[in-house]
Structure formats: C-alpha cells, structure tokens
Design a binder for these strands. Structure first.
Lengths: 205, 205
DNA sequence: ACAATTTCCTAGCGGTCGTTACAGAAAGAA
DNA sequence: TTCTTTCTGTAACGACCGCTAGGAAATTGT
C-alpha cells in the first residue's frame, strides 16, 4: 500500500479537505454553499476540487456519507447497543440533544437540513437525503414492530406512526438547534418527547 | 375610496399576484425562488413586480404577513377559542395535520421551511422568520404558564420546555409533510405527540 | 538530463442572479 | 388635442454561479 504514484503530489490532505467541505455544507446547506465557499474552506483551488472530488453534487454525496459515518454514527450505535426500541430511541434523543448543539460544530443535523429548499436542478440531491431520512424512520419502525412481536411493547402500538413521530421529533430538535436552542433545552425536549412513548411491558416476571 | 388615480392603470390584481408569489415562496423557499420564477408565477414583468412590491426581500416580507394572515390563522384561532393551553395545542396539531398536507396547496409551513439554508445576504430575512417562530413558542409558553398559575396544569410543568417541545413537533410535522407524509399520517403523529402533555387537573369539584 | 505523468494556478467560459434604464402605451387633466 | 402621470415590455447591467481549458510546476521512471 501507499505506493508512491507518479506525477506531482497532491498538496493537500484529501480527508481533511472533505472534513472542511462537510462543515461548509453542514452549516449553509447544499445550494447556499458555492464552489467558491468550498474552495475557501478547503484551502484549495477549484480545479483541484474537481479533480479530487468530481462535481459539486458528487462531492456532496461523499460529504453525506462522511457525515453519517463520522457525525451520525451515534444513532446507529445507540440503536445497536440498546436492548429495546424504546431505550434505543431514548438514548438517540438524549445524545442528539448534545450533538445538535455543540459549540465546536455546525448545529443541527446535515441530513435533516441541508436540502430543504432547492431548485429543480437539485431535485435528485434532495431525493437522496429524503431516502436517508425515510430509511432511518423505517429502521425505527422495524425495531418497534420487533418489540411488539416480542411482547416488549403492547400490541396496540402503531409501529409506523411511532417511528414517524420519532422522526418528526428529531427533525424538530435539529431545527430548534439551528434556531439557537442549547443542549440543555434540547435535552428537556427529548425527555418530554419520550413521554409519548408507551411503557414497556416488564413481562410476567 | 377607490378614487381613480391618474396614469396608466395596473394590468393585474395586486392581491392575486401576492397570492401567487406566496405559493411560489411557500413551495421553493426564499432563496430558491428567483425573480424569474416569481414573474412567471405572478404573470407580470419584472419592472411591474418591482414597482408594486419593491425588491425581493420586501416582497417576501409582505408574503410572510399574507401567509400568516391567510394560511397560518388557524393557529391563532385555535389558541384563542380553546379554553386551555392543552386543548389549544391539541387542536393546532390536529388542524396542522390537515393544513400541512393539503393537495391544493404547497406542503408544510412557510414560516418553518422557507429560509432554513441561506447565504449571508439573506441573514436578516432568516432572522425575521426565526423571530416569528420564537414568538409562537413564547405565546404557547405564556398560555402554559397561565394554566399552571390557574391550577389547570400541575406546578411541576416546565412551561418553556413544554412550549419548545410543541414547537419542535410542529416543525417536525411540517418537514414530514414536505417529505410526503399524508394528513392521516400527520394526524397520528399529532395524537402521539399529545401523549407527552401532562393531563389537566380537573379541579376539586 | 530528459521524458512521462499528475497537480496547481490563472483566467475565463456560458448561464443565471437581482435589479434597473429606457422608450412606448394607456389613462386622467387641461 | 396636448400635457402629465403611471404602468408595461424589452433589453441590458454587473455580479456571481458551476465548471474547465491551458500552461507552469513538481514529482517518478529511464
């Protein structure tokens, strides 16, 4: 590995540049972040950007993957490590309250807010993020349905509605963060939101 | 009134044009709606638009007022007509489920979604909408605090947190609507969301 | 040293942005 | 009619958009 290639070596670290691009898109969204904004944030010229990342849309898709991997991983981890849908979602909301209002990073969630308004040319980019959000809701729905089937949650629970409610709360927390809400305020929202969740059946001892 | 003025009469109805502009901004947001989009939607030329409404930002501010008056009035009405904070918010959420997913209008709420991402030049426009959202949350907070003071809601209720939670749910419902959720799906979210609200104290009858 | 290869910088492409100057058209006032 | 006033359509302004051609610079292979 790391075989030296021929030709002039790249003068910047690709992953560092990707990280800077992620923060730019995260803060201002897809359309409002221009190539000039990106080259300034990444510290490289436009031709270098296009050579290393392709066009703006391709770069953004890579940014989304990078964001999910590096900044959205707490969701996957919480759902994987917690035993039930309820405890998993509870932890996701608690951690989102912290992550969405960190002082050293852009606020809110890139997947939620980066492509809310767009022109026709960005339609497919918007659909991509929509698909990610939809997939997250469906994943929660599957976890809820599994708990219902296992008798952990009452049979009266509507898994789809509960999952969509959870998605709406996360999107709302993201926008509250972008509107300036603190981590403490978001944590209070998260705890309140869990009040809508049905209690788990402790089982027949 | 209706005194005929001198000069060539306007060839379009100002309020109709404002309605069309409202729908354009509602659907695509502030930045993604170009003057060309507006003139096409309004059926007038650019100079007529500028003469009748001022620049893009001024037009948008008038659109926001028009939207609140004509499409956001259900919120004010519900809070004014319902006796308690809880019943008022419950009705707002129920009606929002219908209003945010109407087939004959753009989905979601203009105040929530029209200026989520923006460039520096639109900073003040974004602040304007933020102020509207903040004012709505504060209004709910005041209603909750009043009910706590009147003994309708338990003293343990955090009025600020409950109001912010309600705002987050509305913003989440708006974005769910923009992601394609139906009125029925939003109504289910609304009912679930009310599960987080404390029950009212029926009083020592 | 010299060729081959890859990246970097400058400069500019065509297109769209918000906005406006200008001249012609349509009304009331004299 | 003629003047004044206001609106309308054409056409264009400078600025920025995403993107790229072309040549200089920096490295490896021979």
């Amino acid at each position: 590995m790391a075989t030296r290639t021929r030709g002039r070596p790249r003068s910047f670290d690709r992953e560092t540049a990707l990280e800077q691009a992620t923060r730019a898109f995260w803060e201002h969204g897809y359309e409002a972040t221009s190539i000039a904004d990106l080259t300034a944030a990444m510290g490289i010229g436009a031709p270098s950007l296009y050579a290393a990342f392709g066009d703006k849309r391709t770069l953004f898709e890579e940014v989304v993957a990078y964001y999910i991997e590096h900044y959205g991983s707490f969701i996957r981890r919480a759902m994987a490590e917690e035993p039930t849908a309820r405890s998993g979602v509870h932890r996701v909301l608690r951690e989102a309250a912290v992550e969405y209002a960190r002082a050293d990073l852009p606020t809110g969630c890139l997947v939620v807010s980066a492509v809310t308004n767009y022109q026709e040319s960005a339609h497919e980019v918007a659909e991509g993020l929509r698909a990610v959000r939809h997939g997250n809701v469906r994943a929660v729905e599957a976890r809820v349905a599994a708990d219902v089937a296992a008798g952990v949650l009452p049979a009266s629970v509507d898994a789809g509605a509960l999952a969509r409610y959870t998605g709406a709360v996360i999107q709302g927390m993201s926008q509250q963060a972008r509107d300036g809400a603190s981590s403490a305020e978001l944590a209070a929202v998260a705890e309140l939101a869990m009040g809508a969740w049905p209690a788990e059946l402790t089982g027949p001892a």
